[in-house]
């Protein structure tokens, strides 16, 4: 049994079925890539996992606990951290205070939270901007801060939603290194959503592909990349 299981999860927005009976399991220690064209329902799946929206039907099991109807903050405390595709920095707080606010999830004292924050700052290479207001960070920094905040809550499962979008090549390499280190050094399981093929193919152990809210296929990156339905639905004909 994996760390997280989605069982026939469905979400309707009025008449639109954004997620349609999606099922998958993430194994402990794994990096699972979640891919699909724009608007296929990837972010919505994350929003269902952390109960940002209630599911229409289906269930979500995390570490043997049914979290389908738990509240967002409870799910975070159970150990699921997430980043937001549209970043949500606490704008008027410094970068360090952003991370400290997150660190208080497991720490009760100021000193304890600060210690965690310092570690995370270093781990995510944000230490040089620690005192900057989060709202003043450039986009790469904001994306990184999303990861840093999620990490500071000490999750055992991390949901990364397009944290590499909008980065230049050198920032991209740095981001890939950090994501790899999150698993190898911190032992955190990851579900990653990414449009950039270089990232997703390079990082993922397995890939789950969806289109129009429905699962197309699941498998090893090289298998998925060869799957004709995926190529048609997602990669387009000019993918090599």
């Amino acid at each position: 049994m994996g760390i997280l299981t989605l069982n026939k999860v469905t979400k309707n927005f009025g008449g639109l079925t954004a997620v349609n009976k999606v099922s998958f399991t993430v194994e402990e220690g794994e990096i699972l890539g979640l891919i699909g064209p724009n608007g296929s329902g990837k972010t919505t799946i994350f929003n269902l996992i952390n109960h940002y929206y209630p599911v229409t039907s289906g269930e979500i099991i995390f570490k043997g606990i049914n979290i389908t109807h738990k509240q967002t903050h409870e799910i975070a405390m159970l150990g699921i951290g997430r980043t937001f595709q549209v970043v949500k920095p606490l704008k008027r707080l410094s970068v360090e205070d952003n991370i400290m606010a997150a660190a208080f999830a497991r720490e009760t004292t100021f000193a304890g939270a600060r210690k965690v924050a310092r570690e995370v700052l270093e781990f995510t290479h944000l230490d040089h901007v620690a005192n900057m207001k989060a709202g003043a960070l450039p986009i790469a920094g904001r994306k990184r801060l999303e990861i840093a905040k999620a990490l500071a809550t000490r999750p055992s499962l991390l949901l990364l939603d397009e944290t590499a979008a909008g980065l230049n090549p050198s920032e991209l390499d740095e981001a890939i290194d950090i994501i790899k280190a999150i698993r190898s050094e911190l032992g955190i399981t990851i579900i990653i959503v990414e449009h950039i093929m270089k990232v997703i193919m390079n990082i993922s152990d397995r890939i789950h592909a969806i289109a129009f809210g429905t699962t197309i296929t699941e498998g090893k990156p090289e298998e998925v990349a060869k799957n004709p339905t995926v190529i048609e639905a997602y990669l387009g004909t000019d993918y090599h």
Binding site: N50, Y52, Q71, T72, H73, E74, A76, M77, G81, R82, F84, K88, P89, L90, K91, R92, L93, D97, M100, A101, A102, F104, A105, E107, T108, F110, A113, K149, A150, T153
Partner: peptide, 22 residues
């Protein structure tokens, strides 16, 4: 902790919930 949580709620309530803040 309370203070940090107040500020988080002020800055972005949705982000705050995702950080485990009730």
């Amino acid at each position: 902790r309370e203070g940090y949580y107040f500020l988080s709620i002020r800055e972005d309530e949705d982000a705050a919930m995702a950080l485990g803040i009730n």
